[in-house]
Simulated assay, not measured.
Amino acid sequence: MAFDEDIALAPAGEGAYEGRIADGWTTPRGPHGGYVMAMVLHAMELAIGDPQRQPRSLTVHFLRPPKLGPVIARPLIERAGRALSTVTARLEQDGKPVALGVGAFSPAWDAPDVGDAPMPDGVAPPAELSPPLPGAPAFANQLAMQPRFGDAPLTGSDNEMVGGWIDLREPRPLDGPALCVLADGWYPAIWARLTQLHPAPTIDLTVHFRAPLPVEGPLLARFTTKLARGGFFEEDSELWATDGTLVAQSRQLGLLLPPIS
């Protein structure tokens, strides 16, 4: 699968892995953050080497946008308990860090289920795959998106929510790395509330994986931004499988740069 090739990593000695930032995931300000995060998670999974310990939480801070070309991933198992592993990882390019991650991996625990996070009612089901959007950044052509919530970008909307059905355009089971991409796959919810285009790079992104993986797509994704202050804004997301199972939740801190004239 193309996605697996784009996040592929090979042993580089001393616990490091070498990979390559592919050109199919670019945005106007460098590679897509969810794609970079997927590569960090893949390095952690290789270091753990235990598919029973699936990702439960991953936080990545983005230090600088990498360019297309070779990268080195340096995962480190900080602690491997009887059931929970804590892993850190650095993604480097030209000797400089571009992303730092901390992840928690564990099988399911024998514990009670409490509460619910139901899928929104009355949402039209996914339709046939739509063609890529004309003029969209390269990464958007890797995704299949069908809007169901909110308004278009730069419409000055009062609605704090955007989203809809989302999947990889080349369907595959959705594992941890794929969910990193989808949790960052929609245009920023803040854009619908603006009337000028402000680039909105991600400072940090946390994904919580809430269901056994992998799952089948498409997923219904809802993204919400409530507050922007001092140039920074938060964005929360929830992603559900078609059967209503909550698959993932995320939160990120983004930065609003000066508008593009």
Rank of each mutant, 00 (worst) to 15 (best):
A2L: 10
F3D: 07
E5P: 01
I7C: 06
A12P: 08
G13S: 09
E14D: 15
A16E: 13
A16Y: 00
Y17W: 13
W25P: 03
R29N: 12
R29T: 13
G30H: 10
G30C: 11
P31R: 13
G33K: 02
G33S: 12
G33C: 00
M39Y: 04
V40N: 01
H42V: 00
A43W: 02
I48E: 05
D50M: 03
Q52K: 11
R53N: 10
P55V: 15
L58T: 08
L58A: 14
V60A: 12
V60R: 04
V60T: 15
V60F: 08
H61F: 06
L63P: 09
P65I: 04
P66E: 07
I77S: 05
E78D: 14
R82F: 01
A83N: 14
A89F: 01
D94I: 01
A99Y: 03
V102A: 10
S106I: 00
P107H: 09
D110C: 00
D110N: 10
D110V: 02
P112D: 11
P112R: 08
V114Y: 10
G115H: 11
G115W: 13
P120S: 03
A124Y: 01
P125V: 00
P126I: 03
E128Y: 00
S130P: 06
P132S: 11
L133V: 14
A136R: 11
A138I: 05
L143V: 09
M145Y: 14
R148I: 01
F149A: 03
G150R: 08
A152M: 14
P153F: 11
L154T: 06
M161L: 12
G163E: 05
G164K: 05
L168V: 09
R169H: 07
R172I: 11
R172A: 15
L174A: 07
G176V: 03
A178T: 09
V181G: 04
A183M: 15
Y187D: 07
P188R: 09
I190E: 08
A192D: 12
L197I: 03
H198C: 13
P201T: 05
P201S: 08
I203A: 15
L205M: 13
T206P: 04
V207T: 12
V207F: 12
H208P: 00
F209I: 09
P212K: 15
L213W: 04
P214C: 06
P214I: 04
V215I: 05
V215P: 06
E216A: 15
L219H: 01
L219Q: 05
L219A: 02
F223Y: 14
T225L: 04
L227K: 14
G230T: 06
G231P: 02
E235I: 04
D236L: 04
E238N: 12
W240V: 03
A241R: 08
G244T: 09
T245C: 00
Q249K: 14
Q249Y: 04
S250M: 08
S250F: 08
R251N: 14
R251W: 07
Q252D: 05
L253W: 04
L257E: 15
L257R: 15
P258Q: 13
